[in-house]
Design a protein around this nucleic acid. Sequence first.
DNA 1: TTTTGAACTATAGAAAATTTATGAAGCTTC
DNA 2: GAAGCTTCATAAATTTTCTATAGTTCAAAA
Lengths: 224, 224
Amino acid sequence: MKILIIEDEKALQESIVKYLEHQGFVCEAVNNFLEGKEKVRQFAYDCIVIDIGLPYGSGLDIVKELKYMESKAGIIIISAKNALEDKLKGLDLGADDYLPKPFYLSELNSRINAILRRRNFEGSKVVNFNEIKLEADAQRVTVNGKPIVLTDKEYQLLEYFIANRRRLLTKAAIAEHIWGDEYQHVSNFDFIYTHIKNLRKKLIDAGSGDYIKTIYRAGYRFTD
Amino acid sequence: MKILIIEDEKALQESIVKYLEHQGFVCEAVNNFLEGKEKVRQFAYDCIVIDIGLPYGSGLDIVKELKYMESKAGIIIISAKNALEDKLKGLDLGADDYLPKPFYLSELNSRINAILRRRNFEGSKVVNFNEIKLEADAQRVTVNGKPIVLTDKEYQLLEYFIANRRRLLTKAAIAEHIWGDEYQHVSNFDFIYTHIKNLRKKLIDAGSGDYIKTIYRAGYRFTD
DNA sequence: TTTTGAACTATAGAAAATTTATGAAGCTTC
DNA sequence: GAAGCTTCATAAATTTTCTATAGTTCAAAA
């Protein structure tokens, strides 16, 4: 699997490459718009990770280019600001996923895998975890085939848990993922407790196992 | 992981410490050049965050000092002015990364992680010692493949032991590493006994060998 | 060589501190 | 006004620290 990373922050770029290579991907990286465009035209990648804010141009234009070319590569855009606009524009242009900076490399990895998986099985954005089934398209969740109703935050929580199954997720990571940077200074994570509680209850009431394990002083882990 | 922050702006310093502690780092902070130099000479840190503009001297001189000492700590310099010169000088002197103010705390965090990752084990965060396996990513420990549940302190203890396998570790060193410098003057390390005891019990109950050897009047050594 | 005692380490259990869970009460938004 | 999100107060759970006591080690004295 070959991945192209278009990212100008050197330290971040190196981290990504190193991490992904360690995960068994073949990586290439460039640090500006022009080189990015060049690479994209010349070679076929399985997945392309694009920063929006680049020297000499916007990453969004590369997304456009790719779509124009009818490229089959998966596209993940990343953006410094947690800008809803960037996200919407990117997804609108045909990107497969959006990741606000900063993010955990493990998360980027799991999103890449999700996209590649999706691409292979063509179509359905459905993730399973034992008796839990999560249909991303419909933002719908079923337990043993029976649908359950989740609020927005609960759904996001569950999606994040399942995407990062068996991994330790700190409350800070969860907060950043679901609420964004504005919570970085907050030292009070009470609101997470409440959402965890509600999600747990709904899942268990629906007959699922209790997969959300609390790791005292560290965070949570979704596992069986 | 122990981090030193040398930063004179009180509010910023406190934010950094709070944030990083949330991420699971042990932090210490000082607010001027002299104290910074003092700390750096006395203790070993995993990573040091240095503001360039400090009372009584330049942070760059601390970088110099560290390099002279052949310190293994990661170094991140931060600077109020987005001065290219500072950046170049700092990186030239051997700093690992440069961050212009203002920055997102999460950005600082991810850079620290990037450096530690690079520095430590080049990617893979899994360490083995005979039948014991320690997965840093998940903060998970298994013995012969079976997971065991450790408390925070127990985990840190084990991590420290395994990282320094076959080395004599004094109680003072252990206390300093896990609890921070405020324990440097403490002469009573009784609280360590309990943690050692508990860790030993959990490991042995899980079927591991008894690797924590007591060296009378000296400390402990993790070895087979 | 054996005994003895001070210093050191091990252990269990209680107390203190910290962290997480929970239900209810406000807020906002639609 | 209902639904969902957040805050708050309080309860519960878990970990960490403290305390007391017992067991070890080592070296000096007998």
